[in-house]
Amino acid sequence: METLITAFFNLGILRETAPYLWAGFKMSALLTLVVVPLGIAGGLAVALIARTAFRPLRWLVVFYVDFFRAFPPLVLLMFIAFGLPFTGLDLPAFVSVALAFFLNTSSYYGEIFRAGIESIPRGQFEAARSTGLGAAQTMAYVIVPQATRNVIPDLISNTLEVVKLTSIASVVALPELLYAARQAQSITYNATPIIAAGIIYLVCLWPLVRLLSRFEHRQIALH
């Protein structure tokens, strides 16, 4: 027990490394705040383009979605972070990470919005068009608001995954929470910072997990 506490819950180490972890936490939060809205906007765009009458464009979108869903995000991230500099495009780590996340998450959010839009009955389009609303107006004021509402649990669930996924940015040395924790560990030779990072994730995301679990049971019970 004693060893466990010294190894994992060492308050002295925690106090010493807290500033690192705090900086890492802020970076993770910033990354989340950039990556989630971008992904949602991209996903919405993907879902809307997937509905255009122009077939080649639709195929292109399906290809885009499947392509980036097939890539493990870490592979995509490494490819961008290590590969792009060879093209002469030396992006800052934060930008590479944001780009990789955009490609990955917009595919997932896109699938969610697509399903949401498909769940809206045809009558809603027809009613809107019959009052003279244009195609874009119908989407903006009638279809997308309803579609979004129908897929809120899926959006939250995916957002939870995205927030967790930001931890892979540590692999390309973006100083977010996990990276800071590992640095702190290698300096102190103590695992407390890593455990602390795990606990920080747990504390921040647990409410979301509870909320989702409630949603999921209710949603299925409605069938």
Partner: peptide, 15 residues
């Protein structure tokens, strides 16, 4: 569901 997979792996392997 709340802790990122990479954090878990690193705890198992490094901690």
């Amino acid at each position: 569901r709340a802790v990122p997979p990479l954090v878990l792996i690193i705890i198992l392997y490094f901690a």
